[in-house]
Structure formats: C-alpha cells, structure tokens
Amino acid sequence: MRLLFTALGGYGHCFPLIPLAVAARDAGHEVGFATTDEFLPAVEKAGITGIPAGITPQEAFMAEVKGLDGDPRRLPPEELYKILGRVFGAVLPRAFAGDIEPVLAGRRPDLVVYEAMNAGAAYAAKRAGIPCFSHTFGRVAEYDAGEEIRERIRATSAEFGVEGELETGFGDPVLDICPESVQSREFLAAAKRIPVRPVGWSVPGDLPAGIEGRDRDRPLAYLTLGTQYGNTDVLAEAITGLAALDLDVLVATGPVIGVELLGEVPPNVRLEAWVPQSELLPHVDLVVHHGGSGTTLGAFGAGLPQLVLPQGADQLANARAAVEAGVAAQLTGDGFTAEAVTEQARALLADTAVRDAARALAEEVAAMPAPAEVAAALPGRV
C-alpha cells in the first residue's frame, strides 16, 4: 500500500504523525511525508522519504502582515483573527494543494493522511479521487480565531468542491491521538474516529547528563514553553517559582530563546536549548509548560502532574481539559506569579488525588491501539 502523510510546517503539526508513518513503513507500506522544507530533515531522520510542499504558518502570517505598521501581535483581536482566518483558511490550503497536486499525480498513493489543519492536502486528494484520512495533533479545540478560520475554510472548500467541516475530516475517518476522556464531546459525537495511541517522537538525541539513573527521591520538574511560544519573562518567573522548592529544575528554552538570555539561574536549575522530550518525560516528576498538544499528551501518557501556563492558540483549551481531568493546575494573567508557581507546583507534587488521576489517564493512553496496530489495519479501512 502506498501512503502519503502530509503536514503543515511546524513541530506540533509534523511530529504527531511521524510515529504512525514509521509504523506504516515498518509494516511494509511505501511511505512518503510531504511538508515544508524546514521540517524535511526531521522527517528524514525518522527514516521516511521527505517531499517538499507548502509554506509554514509563520511564512504565511508574515506575508499577510507585510506593510502593516507596528507589531502585528498588538492588533485589535478582530483584525488579528481576520488575518489568521486568511492564513489558515485560504493561504495555507491553497499553497499546499498547489504543491501536492503534481506529487499525487506522480506517486498515486492509495491513501493520503493529512494533519488536522492541513485542509489543502484534503482538497488535492479529493480532487484526484484518492481516499484521505485526517490525523489530529491533540484535543480538537476551539480557538479565539476559530470562527474566522472556519468561515474561510468553508469558502475555500467550496472552491474545491469539498463539503463538510475540517474539524471532523470533511466526513472522512479521523485518526485521533487524544484520549477519549479528554477529547471534545462535540468532536466525538460527529467524527468517524479511529483512536491511535499518542506516541511521542523527538529528533534523536542524548538526554542531559545525570538524568538517567538519577536519585528519584529528589523531584525533577521539567519546564518548557515549546517551540513557538518562547517568552523570556514567563520562563524567568517560572524558574524563580520552581527554584524556591526542594527539587531540581530542567528548563528547555527552545529555538526562540537563547539560553544566555536567562542569565544566572539558581544552582538547582539547569538550562538546555533542547532536550529529546519524549525520552525525557519518563524521568521527571512534574511538567510545567505552555499547554501545547505534544507536551500535554506526552504528560498524559507518562502519568505526570502538570502546571500549565497557556500562551495562546489551543493551549487554553488544553489547560482546561487537563484541569478538568484532575491532572493539572493552570496559571494565567495576573494569577501567574513566581509565588503562585511555587504554591501550585508544591501542591501538585503532594496531591495523591492528582497522582491517581494522572496514573488513570496514563492507563487510558496505554490501552489505545498502538500505531503499529493501526498501520497494519489501514488497508482494510480504505
């Protein structure tokens, strides 16, 4: 069976699909993965054939705000939402569809698997008469700009002759890596859902020295704001709050913030530009993070309590879901202070109810069908 996986450029868009792509390859399927040039090296490090297609959301956004005066992030919400609607609802889908159409004509895959925001791949596949499945990258969440994006998607879908809603895969099967207990009720009621266990994937690399075989009697907190939402002030405040506790802190500053920007840190804090997160999580006791889908799902699978500091996009919805599941606390707005971080982190580490809920959620994740099982069954589902 010939499979083509597709994703918009971005860690959160590409990486959740890689475990299933690898499993499909290992099952004997012919597999390619189309995404932007920036992320092809990561795909190829997983042993998958990479195919360039589309532009990144960042490139599309910067093209849309070119010529505007001042910082576009300071635009009134209604203007910013219109821009995001054009980016995700029109610019990105058209760019990807245009690039992927000749690929589909040349490779003639039996199935196209597209990540849940990559409508352009669905448009091109449907126009070519090729079956396609959507693939979530986390909980299906409502964004602040959601209605603008939804309206633009509907208009662009009509241009391609496609009906239905992007959130539910335009009526096609949806490979869903979010545990059912924390998934959107509306999505569960409407989608043709195929559950797939979320399996973390990181670019191969070594864990920081001293992580493996460390003394587990002393807690280790892992702090990250992910790859797109780096904020020096937020990291510094969180570091101050965590360092006040009798534990060690490992901080992944990410590609947006240089380690040197955080200056001197307390002796129980270690700064790293990058860590292989999927390999790290089994070694930590608390995850303090932005609420990105990859980190949220990774903590679910590892059975870890979470302190969520949402910065934007779907992160508020992810934080709410984790709190409602009993495995997390969140801090936002004026409630986010170093003192609040200290208090909440201490409580999360000591709360047996949180620990029990995190363990139960990890068991739910472990019971979901593994990527290898789903990959082996794909031919019978097309």
Rank of each mutant, 00 (worst) to 15 (best):
G50C: 06
L281K: 02
A23K: 09
Q330N: 05
M62C: 03
V259P: 09
G205I: 06
F336G: 09
V113R: 02
T136H: 00
V112F: 05
G294H: 04
E151I: 01
G120F: 00
G312T: 07
P369I: 14
N118V: 00
P371K: 03
A372N: 06
L104S: 09
V31E: 04
D176G: 04
G138R: 05
A27Q: 11
V65L: 14
G161R: 03
T342Q: 14
L304Y: 06
A221N: 02
T232K: 13
E260F: 05
A345W: 02
K82C: 10
L309G: 07
T56R: 03
A63W: 13
E38F: 12
G301H: 15
R73T: 15
G98W: 00
E78S: 14
Q183F: 09
L304A: 04
L8M: 07
A350G: 15
A317I: 09
E30T: 11
D334R: 12
E364Y: 08
A375I: 02
T240L: 07
P282M: 02
G12A: 14
Y143Q: 11
L17D: 15
E38S: 13
L223I: 03
G210A: 01
A302Y: 11
Y123K: 04
A121Q: 06
A317D: 09
L92P: 00
A328Q: 06
G294V: 02
L286V: 01
V259A: 07
R86H: 08
I149R: 13
A328V: 06
A221M: 14
A370E: 14
L235G: 13
A116W: 07
P371F: 01
R139L: 05
K66C: 04
A252L: 07
G12C: 10
E151L: 11
E142I: 12
L261R: 08
K192P: 04
W201Q: 05
G28D: 15
F187R: 02
I257W: 13
A221R: 13
A299E: 05
T332F: 02
P93G: 02
